[in-house]
């Protein structure tokens, strides 16, 4: 029977089976809470009747998810906002920092890719700055900018700039000489050559860099928000940990994964739209 199904269908069935088995094992592995009447006198006296903190079973996480997702945008004060609002804040910070980085990295990458001198001049700075963990910038950013919101955006900016810069420079410098010669024999000016020949030729590499950057930015925003606090999905995770609400922690971890996947697939779509076969 399985033989008649396509590869995709078989893979989908296997995925569902793994999910169900995983959830069942998880559910079964959580020890049940003893009912109050089963407790001995001693246990009751030592607080055994109070609910014990533990990893919640998947059923609880699913119930939590249902509760949160059915009303994602409620706002009941600084410490109680819907998951939609928290994710919205995070996405806003990521996209702001990310597009500022793109505005700097792509033109600069063009310059570095087209000019040997610029490449050699910028290279030492890039090599030193690139391996710095973006969070290491946080204290300096907080001191100089004096605003936690803007500091978080700066951290996103600094972490997403490098892959875009390096990939743009690499893509631009690798454009085939023949295509540039086609532009030259058609008397295209340097600006038109950049837009009609070099940009489309380097686009797949540039978009790859942008895709790597958005992934890193989404990784970093969670940590940054744990530090700066206030709003955002990273803050939400940390806040629920402080509340010892592990159900919400697990739920928000899953949400981080889902949003990251959506951001990545958006760039994957963009990547396919500019791809070409030589």
């Amino acid at each position: 029977m399985l033989g008649t199904l396509s590869v995709n269908q078989r893979a989908a069935i296997l995925s569902v089976v793994m999910l169900v088995v995983g959830l069942l094992i998880w559910e079964a592995a959580i020890p049940a809470q003893k009912a109050a009447e089963e407790l001995t006198e001693y246990e009751r006296l030592t607080g055994g009747g109070a609910p014990k903190a533990g990893v919640p079973p998947p059923s609880q996480v699913i119930a939590k998810a249902w509760e949160q997702l059915s009303n994602p945008f409620y706002d009941a004060g600084p410490n109680d906002k819907g998951i939609g609002i928290q994710i919205g804040y995070s996405i806003y910070r990521v996209l702001t920092g990310y597009f500022l980085a793109a505005l700097v990295a792509i033109p600069l990458g063009f310059l570095i890719g087209m000019s040997q001198v610029a490449y050699k001049a910028f290279n030492p700075f890039i090599q030193v700055l690139r391996p710095i963990s973006p969070l290491a910038w946080m204290p300096l950013a907080l001191f100089i900018i004096q605003d936690s919101e803007a500091s978080a955006i700066f951290v996103i900016f600094i972490c997403s700039i490098w892959p875009m810069l390096i990939n743009t420079a690499f893509g631009v410098s690798g454009v085939r000489k023949d295509w540039v010669n086609v532009a030259r024999t058609h008397e295209l000016g340097s600006l038109r050559t950049a837009f009609t020949v070099i940009l489309p030729a380097a686009a797949p590499t540039i978009i790859t860099g942008m895709r790597i950057s958005i992934g890193i930015a989404w990784l970093v925003i969670v940590a940054a928000e744990m530090l700066v606090g206030g709003t955002g999905i990273g803050y939400y995770v940390w806040n629920e940990w402080n509340n010892l609400d592990l159900t919400s922690v697990i739920f928000s971890i899953l949400m981080i994964g889902v949003v990251g996947m959506l951001l990545d697939s958006a760039f994957g779509y963009l990547q396919r739209s500019v791809a070409y076969v030589e």
Binding site: N181, T185, A203, V274
Partner: peptide
């Protein structure tokens, strides 16, 4: 310098693959 007055057909065609 190159000019539109002198057209070139390259050995490897040099077509722009994204067009």
């Amino acid at each position: 310098g190159p000019s539109l007055d002198r057209g070139v057909v390259f050995q490897n065609y040099s077509l722009l693959p994204w067009l």
